[in-house]
């Protein structure tokens, strides 16, 4: 397991290998726990892997390192994804992921900053992460700390009004150290996002709110890296990466299947998925 922390990986193939491992660990912990959110953890896996291992500055041995970049998983139900990333980064031993959702585990059903060092703020009630990200970026700016802030939201999550309050705040205060990601897997619990409560045209909405918006294929590592670079180089306004993704990405068993939002794989499904991921 990698304990490299501040080093950044730029090799695309290497990042793709890590994201495969992240997916397998997500499915491993979900299969063991028997409850949790499969689809949304897998859809954001590639972009989150790229943020963690090619962009972010952090020190797993010192989670409160002042110069670290901040990461907020606003869609807190993708907790298995962040736990897989943190295990890979060396925040805790890989065996810890087996305790997901079990009594007294630091790996709560949704991320808890009081129980797991390295989680910046507790999430789980949707729509709140971007506001916290803004506050962090403003605080860092006051200290002339160049650290950056990343925040991953779901597409369904942008139905929450607070997201748009925060979108206004980020643009108003010209928070260019902030990079938001909308994981557009087009599904939410009750069905297709566009059927439940349409959010399109999402790119135009963010641009109208004063953001620099970049649309990408959220599973293409090269596009992800290039969008993250573009975000870093965009000054005077915040950047949002609208990542078009597939819910449950990794296995035909889960892909684009709304029923796998909050359902976990069986042992057999897990084994099949691991084969597909390794061959993919």
């Amino acid at each position: 397991m990698s304990t490299a922390t501040k080093g950044k990986i730029t090799d695309i193939a290497q990042l793709e290998e890590i994201s495969k491992k992240i997916r397998i660990n997500i499915l491993h912990m979900l299969t063991l726990s028997g409850s949790g959110h499969t689809g949304g953890s897998l859809s954001a896996a590639d972009i989150a892997t790229a943020i963690y291992f090619s962009k972010m500055k952090f020190d797993a041995a010192n989670p409160k390192w002042e110069e670290r970049d901040r990461f907020i998983m606003s869609k807190g139900h993708a907790a298995p994804l962040i736990y897989a990333l943190m295990a890979e980064a060396g925040y805790f031993p890989i065996e810890t992921i087996d305790s997901l959702r079990k009594i007294e585990s630091p790996l709560q059903g949704h991320p808890c900053c009081q129980k797991l060092p390295g989680i910046e703020v507790s999430t789980g009630s949707l729509g709140q992460g971007l506001s916290v990200a803004n506050g962090m970026a403003l605080g860092l700016r006051l200290d002339n700390n160049p650290a950056r802030v990343f925040c991953i939201m779901g597409d369904g999550e942008t139905q929450e009004g607070q997201v748009w309050e925060a979108a206004m705040t980020a643009a108003h205060y010209k928070i260019d150290t902030l990079c938001a990601v909308v994981d557009c897997n087009e599904l939410q619990i009750d069905g297709a996002v566009e059927d439940v409560m349409g959010i399109q045209p999402i790119h135009d909405k963010w641009e109208a709110f004063g953001w620099h918006a970049i649309n990408i294929d959220g599973h293409d590592m090269e596009s992800i890296i290039s969008a993250l670079d573009e975000a870093e180089n965009t000054k005077g306004k915040p950047t949002v990466i609208i990542a078009n993704t597939t819910k449950g990405k990794g296995s035909v068993l889960f892909e684009d299947k709304v029923e796998f939002h909050g359902v976990t794989p069986t042992k057999e499904e897990f084994e099949q998925a691991v084969k597909e991921i390794n061959n993919g």
Binding site: V132, L138, A166
Partner: peptide, 11 residues
Amino acid sequence: GTAAGLALTGK
């Protein structure tokens, strides 16, 4: 939420 973020940077 913004206040919480500011607090998390030591303000």
